[in-house]
Design a protein around this nucleic acid. Structure first.
Lengths: 357, 357
DNA sequence: CTGAAAGCGCTAACAC
DNA sequence: GTGTTAGCGCTTTCAG
């Protein structure tokens, strides 16, 4: 039960038809070495006549390059990662690279498995939004076998890969400052970074630290401290659950059920924001009257909401694009010191933050 | 500048270490043929000791199978395709397949190029949401070279691939009936299926018919006719532009500027809906008071909108999952007649349809 | 500029 | 059950 018909035309067929050796045909078709103008034309003609298509597998086996990039994100359904991935495929394709995709669901094991499989397929490089900020052994191993890796959106302690990140601490800090300036004193933080088993339905993950979360939390705390709000209470307003809407819903509910619930919430991505919004409504409160909201990511529906959502707009496309450029440069021989790109996000004020007297 | 270190451990190394032939080592490691219990253990031990990892390229060259599926969608950033893709990767991975991704932007040329590249890489099969409903030559060619193809979401005339589709005509018809029942007489239709050049910023595509659009339009027209609304005017309320929000915005505007604008609009996906909503607001009208709206796809933000959006919920995940199961079955030797799966969507009534006296 | 020959890492016959 | 041998389709020395 062969998948490929035995009749697939090879370089040998083309060579025969053109009356040259396979080596020459290969040079003509592969665009390397040197061939005389007319032989090149003869070979090219024969190739297109026969409908020759190169076998990338055979080529890769020798060159050691597959022109393929492995991408690992938490979940392609999250608009943030969808956009990062879109950027990656755009830039990759423009340089002749293909993209293989894997979702980790914030699960380190899944990430490890994906890395292994990608490596077996000999991807030239990996772009990963790491599920853990302190376990990068599998990535280091990947590097050791010859694959280049670039970290996108999230750092990993103890590694020295190229990174393309956003100034998360500053972004969170500025958002909280904005809330403080509007008169808020009890400010919640809802995030999602626990691994999730999809089939289970329910969140079945263990808490797992990711750098984005850590940095944002630091920024949040810093702004609170600046404002003299870092009392014992502060910790009570931090909620970290799974990355899905339902998870954020639950976390937010637990915040709203507090005796003195927060008057404002910072959500760490648009999916989380959705959960927050639904929880606020389910609790019979209103945005922004009862609860103000700022969310990371300028999602497509942010301005269509009522009230329109105040957000921290991250340069998401650029994140993916820069990571890919970096990676491709490495693949082309750039051996300089690790590069660390930091992009800046912007607070886009809309209508979800109320001023409190 | 080799990408791979020359020191990569091969099956020969493992064989030597285990004191067996490469063939036996390969059998043990590849899980085919037969090996005695203890030799298997010896080989496995040697392999893990040396850190052996199979070279999928070499294996694929012989077996003719890469355990890879090529996926071509219009745009991974569209939540519909993101979910389809998520489903595909989930099912694929569970069966040991990898997924390579390409975006066509509804551009047939881009789709053709992607198919070529995927074929060169010897993907086992293709799952595609075709950019054109009447040009499937490139897909037929793919099939001819040995790759199986499954069509998802969209049919292609003149081909007999397996398909997994939604009952689009019925869905659109039911939506329009719902609008008619609510008293609407002037019902608009906004869709997007023209190819788009991303870099250009502006829509630079030519109109291109896709089956989804055709079927929905048929359903729309059918319901209009049933209701005796299929006069000359009917055609005036149909607008087809590019697949992006801005495109839908423009199309909707042209609808709203009419002397007798529609009192209701059917949007063919969530991105289009967003453009419609923004246009309605920009025109100073309100949903649902001035313009009612029904959109295809139960997007994540639909119920969070004000008013919550009435939608046609498509079984998006299932669409991708079924397509993948079908494909994998083919790869495993299923040679039955082409299969055509039709899934049903549901109208989810929320608050964006007003009853007109 | 072109050809002959070797070989990438693995699997598939075919012996034994 | 295991080893030997050939060879997948291509690139890469190395001669000429």
């Amino acid at each position: 039960m062969r998948n490929r018909p035995a009749t697939s035309v090879t370089i040998a067929d083309v060579a025969r038809a053109a009356g040259v050796s396979t080596a020459t045909a290969a040079r003509a078709l592969g665009g390397y070495g040197t061939v005389r103008r007319d032989t090149l034309e003869r070979v090219t003609a024969a190739a297109s006549e026969l409908g020759y298509r190169p076998n990338a597998l055979a080529r890769s086996m020798i060159t050691g390059r597959t022109q393929t990039i492995g991408v690992i994100v938490a979940d392609i359904e999250n608009p943030f990662f969808a956009r990062v991935t879109r950027a990656i495929t755009d830039v990759a394709r423009a340089s002749g690279f293909e993209v293989v995709l894997a979702n980790s669901d914030e699960d380190l094991e899944a990430e490890r498995a994906a890395v292994k499989l990608f490596l077996d397929k000999r991807v030239d490089g990996l772009i990963v939004a790491a599920a853990s900020n302190d376990d990068g052994a599998h990535l280091a191993e990947a590097r050791a076998t010859g694959a280049h890796v670039v970290l996108v959106d999230r750092r990993v302690r103890g590694t020295d890969f190229d990174t393309v990140l956003v100034h998360n601490r500053a972004a969170a800090r500025d958002a909280v400052r904005h809330l403080v300036a509007a008169g808020h004193r009890r400010i919640g933080y809802v995030s999602g970074a626990m691994a999730v088993r999809r089939e289970g339905g329910a969140t079945a993950g263990r808490p797992r630290a990711i750098s984005t979360g850590g940095d944002r939390l630091t920024g949040y705390r810093q702004a609170l401290k600046e404002a003299g709000l870092a009392g014992d209470l502060a910790g009570d307003y931090v909620r970290v659950g799974g990355p899905r809407r339902q998870d954020a819903f639950v976390q937010t509910m637990s915040l709203l059920e507090l005796g003195t619930p927060p008057t404002a919430i910072l959500a760490t991505d648009s999916v989380i924001a959705l959960g927050v919004i639904q929880a606020v409504r389910a609790a019979g409160r209103r945005i922004p009257d009862d609860v103000s909201l700022i969310s990371f990511d300028d999602t497509e529906w942010a301005e269509v909401l009522n009230p329109p959502l105040t957000v921290i707009a991250q340069p998401v496309y650029e994140l993916g694009a820069r990571a890919t450029t970096l990676l491709i440069n490495r693949l082309q021989g750039d051996t300089a010191e690790p590069r660390h790109v930091r992009l800046t996000s912007t607070l886009v004020e809309r209508g979800s933050v109320a001023v409190r007297p």
